[in-house]
């Protein structure tokens, strides 16, 4: 971690030329493997983009034809006009933002309680929390709907948002952050405690600043989850003006006819924002998921 006093960067020992050479060879090897396997991982996205530029007929040619014949930009214009694309996108961003906001406030707080405060019954409660993740959604879906319907929240975003803030899914992020907090050196928090700092202050002034990247991670995952969620919006929203992109994507799929080109174009525009978001967040994000505090 950046603030870690034991930073070992300076300890880089002088290395012999031979070792450096073998290091260079190994690096080249790493690049080779990463690039080759990386091509396989690039495939779905490249496929998606290329397919979005093909005619419906070209899409299914067997054996596959990678490049579109004549580039079909109109897949994009048609896709955007077939549904209120930007309204749905706005709605999706709004829901995702609300979910992120709550989760990054609540999850670290709870994770701190589960990792840094040694209170009676902590482990028991922690197991209970984990076990709430183990019941499949199929059997709790209807009671949850009933509950939100009783408090008159259906046809609003709140069932979706409240579920992300207070539902069982939160446990995933709490568990992740707990693993992270457990790695923060004992001495850091303990010395503050001796100085008389309250837990809330240690949390706010030591643990939170140290885990900004971790929070970023949790925020990003929450965002991605909300972005792709289909079930929640479909079940709860009865007003098409409130729909999200994932429901919008279904509009290109009709029972006897699928507008493949448009579907792929819409999927590309659906994916692009999160790819870009991911690209810019990932630097911090990488540091974030770490769970060992020492460097």
């Amino acid at each position: 971690m950046n603030a870690s006093p034991q930073s070992a960067d300076a300890a880089a020992a002088p290395r012999s030329a031979a070792r450096r050479r073998s290091g260079a060879a190994r690096k080249a090897m790493s690049h080779l493997v990463l690039t080759l396997v990386g091509l396989l991982f690039l495939m779905p996205f490249v496929w998606l983009v290329l397919t979005s530029l093909k005619t419906d007929d070209e899409i299914f040619v067997v054996p596959v034809q990678w490049l579109p014949g004549a580039i079909q930009w109109e897949n994009y214009t048609k896709a955007i006009h077939a549904i209120p694309y930007f309204r749905y996108m706005g709605n999706t961003i709004w829901i995702a933002a609300l979910c992120v906001l709550g989760v990054v406030v609540i999850a670290p707080l709870v994770a701190y309680g589960f990792s840094k405060i040694d209170f009676k019954g902590r482990n028991g409660l922690f197991y209970i929390m984990l076990s709430t993740l183990m019941l499949p959604f199929q059997v709790t879906m209807i009671p949850i709907y009933v509950m939100f319907n009783k408090i008159d929240l259906t046809n609003s975003y709140w069932p979706i948002v409240l579920s992300s803030w207070f539902g069982t899914g939160l446990a995933y992020y709490i568990f992740l952050l707990r693993q992270f907090f457990l790695g923060i050196p004992h001495e850091l928090t303990e010395s503050a405690k001796i100085d008389g700092a309250s837990e809330l202050r240690i949390y706010a002034q030591i643990v939170l600043p140290l885990s900004k990247p971790a929070l970023l991670t949790v925020g990003l995952f929450t965002f991605l989850g909300a972005w792709g969620d289909f079930q929640g919006p479909l079940i709860y929203l009865n007003d098409p003006d409130k729909w999200t992109l994932s429901i919008g994507l279904k509009q290109y799929i009709q029972e006897n006819k699928v507008a493949w080109g448009q579907l792929m174009a819409a999927s590309t525009i659906f994916t692009l924002p999160i790819v870009i978001l991911y690209f810019f967040v990932q630097k911090k994000f990488i540091e974030g998921i770490t769970i060992t505090g020492l460097k």
């Binding site: 991982f41 779905p44 996205f45 998606l48 397919t51 991605l224 579907l263 999927s267 994916t271 999160i274």
Partner: peptide, 9 residues
Amino acid sequence: LPTLVPIVA
């Protein structure tokens, strides 16, 4: 990237 691509695609 692959985790971001919609499942239909």
